[in-house]
Amino acid sequence: MSALSARQAVLLVTRREIETRILSKMFLIFTGLMLVTVIGGSVIFTLIGGSSAVTVGVTDPALARPLAAAADALGEDVETRTVPAATGEKQVLDGELDVFVTGTATAPKAVVKRQLDPALQAALASIARQTALDAEIARTGGDPAAANRAAAAAKVDVQRLDPQAEGFGERIGLGMFAGILVYLILLVYGQTVVQGVVEEKSSRVVELLLTSIRPTQLLFGKVLGIGVVGTVQMLLVVVAGVVSAQVTGLFSIPASVITWAGFWALVWFLLGYVMYALMFAALGSLVSRQEDANGVVTPVMMLIIVPYVIGVSVLPADPDSGLVELLSLIPFFSPTLMPMRAAFDVPAWQVALTLTLTVLLIALMIQLAGRIYRNSVLRTGTRIRLADAFRDA
């Protein structure tokens, strides 16, 4: 029988990993739970979000009833209260009011913290137009042209006390979902790589495998095979999330933003997985027992956990955080932070720079991980020092 080529050897190991894991109970249960969580979450949040009332403060009590009626006609649940002009803006900033309406019926001014609900803005515009139309008809004695001109000129003036991107809250939620998803699957499949390497080494199966293929071929086939399984799972969850968000109308932001965020979550998972999996596999080859594995891979896990914690702690309050922006450009931190930022407008040069640096780092990791794995995977017993794994090449 002729020896396997490098390509055949890698594909053989890849297929073995896929067949072993794609139908495993862990994969099926984990995938099912994530799909139920994503789809069920979209439905639940839509129902919860659709039932909440918007609290509107008005300085003119005469605006309260027509505003509530106009909003109700547009499917918006509005609770109105009369608020002194001096405290209205403070109540908006403190979260006591969603909207503070000042001005006159023909020229209302809506003060909001970030953005005005479209239905409420339409309701205010409707009141302004109708009031202006009635006043002009009464003044001109029923001139339709003048009435139409006055109605067309009526508009709502919106003042944002804390300007942010359109759909600020929804973008934050989308970014957090993408970041959490990438974080979870990176951790799960990074640990899967470690467990696979240590299990083969401790059971001496690796010695049998390496009679037919080279260590680096086994390494790359394992990383590729487990990566395919992880990518299938990631793709299923991303597609389910995007589709369910569209079907339930969970987000009011453009569908392109949701799809774009899902695309970048998948891209950064792929890049992050390859980078981290190579490190996990290399470090896992230094030990021969599962109980020793956590100790050697903790530094890599921290590269995933630390930026994730920073992202979910800082971004919701400050999407323009300079710290998060800087860390997201560092390839070790990019896979968890960039998906969170993707829901907002990330400068193209930052994306290009980070992608380039990450690809270059992966190329370096291929060399380093291959060397460590090759020198360590057949050595059993006590934990191998990282310096020895390099020196014995």
Results as ranks from 00 to 15, higher is better:
249 G>I: 05
389 A>H: 07
302 M>W: 10
226 I>G: 07
57 G>W: 06
14 T>A: 14
150 A>T: 10
329 L>I: 01
271 L>Y: 07
255 A>D: 11
14 T>M: 14
250 L>N: 04
327 L>M: 13
120 L>A: 00
12 L>G: 12
172 I>L: 10
206 V>A: 12
182 V>N: 05
8 Q>I: 05
62 A>I: 01
59 T>E: 11
95 G>M: 01
115 Q>Y: 00
287 V>A: 07
260 W>S: 15
270 L>W: 08
33 L>M: 13
247 V>R: 11
317 A>Q: 15
201 K>D: 08
310 I>C: 14
79 E>W: 02
174 L>E: 03
308 Y>Q: 11
349 W>I: 12
102 T>F: 05
290 Q>N: 12
300 V>W: 02
71 A>H: 07
278 L>W: 04
302 M>Q: 04
161 L>H: 06
258 I>K: 03
3 A>N: 13
360 L>Y: 01
335 P>D: 08
284 G>L: 12
305 I>V: 15
332 F>D: 02
382 T>Y: 09
355 L>W: 06
132 A>N: 02
247 V>A: 10
275 M>Q: 11
319 P>G: 08
86 A>R: 13
335 P>N: 06
71 A>W: 02
258 I>G: 01
163 P>D: 03
306 V>G: 00
300 V>P: 01
371 R>K: 15
10 V>R: 09
289 R>V: 04
306 V>C: 06
159 Q>K: 15
303 L>F: 13
102 T>I: 06
296 V>C: 09
318 D>K: 07
317 A>K: 12
75 G>E: 01
278 L>D: 09
368 L>E: 06
170 E>D: 10
344 F>Q: 00
389 A>V: 00
35 L>F: 05
